[in-house]
Computed example of a mutant assay.
Amino acid sequence: MKTYILLFRGINVGGRNILPMADLRLLLQQNGFDAVRTYIQSGNVILKGKSKPGESVLREIEAGFGFRPEMIVLGEDEFDAAVKHNPYDLADGKSVHFYFLQHEPQPDRAKLMALASETERFEIKGKVFYLQAPDGIGRSKLVAGLEKCLGVPATGRNLNTINKLRQMTEEA
């Protein structure tokens, strides 16, 4: 069995797309996945399976909860590579963000640069957009326009969350 990391986008945010983690764990277990663990309410899942979670999981969430979230699934090796290739300070847990991309991006670098504040730094490596935002991302124009500039769906996690997920994969 392989270990997979599932990153759901846009669940349990602002009172919309409510998906309790206990229900998500049960749904995944009922679909044949083992050692299902979640971290915080924003849709971070570590599990083991014979095959990669996919379309059937999304259909069941839609049938049971009335919405279809976006889900990015990473194998443990792919997740570890994303962590390894992080170009920013590993101690900067709240300011460094990983945006996992659904597909290889076709970035509009000129727009990305125009939207970035003078303190924001970013790099794209494969299907990961790395962002260092020392002033936070709450009002970031770059974050607000990110998907449009990259041309692909993305879901972001800060380095603190990434480190916790990495710890959970090591424990799995």
Rank of each mutant, 00 (worst) to 15 (best):
F122Q: 02
P153N: 03
I124R: 12
R139G: 09
V152Q: 13
V128S: 08
E123A: 10
R121N: 15
K127D: 12
K141F: 00
R139L: 10
I124M: 09
T119I: 09
K148F: 11
K111A: 14
L159C: 04
A133Q: 08
V143W: 00
V143K: 10
S117M: 06
E120N: 02
A110F: 02
L115K: 05
D135H: 12
N158W: 05
L150K: 07
F122G: 02
Q132S: 13
A144S: 15
K111W: 03
R139M: 14
I137M: 07
F129H: 10
V152F: 05
L150D: 08
V143Y: 00
E118K: 14
K141C: 04
R121K: 15
N160L: 08
A144V: 10
G151I: 03
D135T: 10
A144H: 13
I124N: 12
L159Y: 15
G156L: 04
P153T: 07
L131W: 07
A110S: 12
S117I: 02
N160A: 11
L146M: 07
E120L: 05
I124T: 10
K125P: 00
A154S: 13
C149Y: 03
K125M: 03
F129W: 11
F122W: 15
A114H: 12
E147W: 08
S140G: 03
M113K: 15
L142I: 01
L112N: 05
K125D: 11
K141P: 11
L115G: 00
N158V: 05
F129L: 12
G138D: 07
S117N: 13
A133I: 04
